[in-house]
Simulated scan of single mutants.
Amino acid sequence: MSSGRTAGLPHVDARTPAVLVLPGPVSRDRVPGLCAEVRALLEGGESEVVVCDVGGLGPPGLGAVDLLARLQLAARRAGGRIRLRDPDPALHALLDLVGLRFQVEGQPEEGEPALGVEEAVESGDPAV
């Protein structure tokens, strides 16, 4: 008895990032545990990115900025980075104000054109 191969390619999803949902207001005593969780997700997974769902963080403030800065530092030390999901526009503005840049889901990565943008081709350009 032998088992036949299934048709097509096997499903391999090694690029799917882990997701960490950040609940309501986070107290300072929970920050080290969340940093350890980010490190564990990066060290145990196949992805270099942890998506932090910040939609439930509550009103943006310096506590949220401090938390995200520490999570990014923990991710960098583990060889990865974090990406934000569903940030409040005020939180995004506050992060810009203090000079912290985070990739946000749905935005093109640095160096990539935005979706729907095509390069113009001039008539004298040779075909590639």
Rank of each mutant, 00 (worst) to 15 (best):
V54D: 01
L73D: 11
Q72F: 06
G44L: 03
D66Y: 12
R28Q: 13
A74T: 02
L71P: 00
R70V: 10
L67F: 09
A14Q: 02
P25G: 14
Q72R: 12
R70L: 11
L67Y: 01
A75T: 05
G56M: 14
G24P: 13
E43R: 15
V38Y: 09
R15S: 14
R83V: 11
L67M: 05
Q72H: 15
A75G: 08
A75L: 00
L68D: 00
G44I: 01
G58L: 07
R15M: 12
G79Q: 05
L9C: 01
V31P: 04
E43T: 14
T16G: 07
G24S: 15
P17H: 03
R76A: 15
D13M: 07
V31D: 07
G79A: 14
R85V: 01
R85T: 00
H11I: 10
P32H: 13
A18Y: 06
P17Q: 00
C52F: 11
Q72Y: 07
D53L: 07
A74H: 04
G24V: 04
D66R: 15
E46G: 13
I82N: 04
E43K: 15
E37H: 04
G79V: 07
G80Q: 01
A14C: 02
V21T: 13
S47K: 00
L41C: 06
E48W: 13
C52Q: 02
V38E: 06
V26P: 01
A14L: 15
A75S: 01
H11S: 11
G79E: 05
G58N: 09
G45N: 02
D29H: 15
R28F: 14
E48L: 08
C52Y: 12
V12T: 10
G55F: 03
L22I: 10
L22N: 01
V65E: 02
A40T: 09
A64K: 02
D66H: 15
S47P: 02
A74I: 11
P60R: 05
L42C: 07
I82S: 04
P59T: 14
L9N: 08
R39K: 13
Q72I: 08
L68I: 12
A40Y: 03
L20I: 02
V26W: 07
V21K: 08
L71W: 05
G79L: 02
E37N: 08
G44Q: 10
G61F: 00
D13E: 08
V49M: 02
G58Q: 11
A75H: 05
E46N: 03
S27N: 12
V21S: 10
R76S: 12
G58H: 11
A40F: 05
L71D: 04
P23G: 12
G79M: 06
I82A: 01
L67R: 00
P25F: 03
E37F: 07
L20P: 00
L67T: 06
R83Y: 02
A69S: 15
D13T: 11
G24C: 11
V51S: 04
E48F: 13
E46W: 09
C35V: 06
H11Q: 09
L67Q: 05
A14I: 08
L34E: 02
V21F: 10
P10T: 02
V31S: 08
V21N: 05
G58M: 10
S27V: 15
S27K: 08
A14K: 06
R76W: 11
V26F: 05
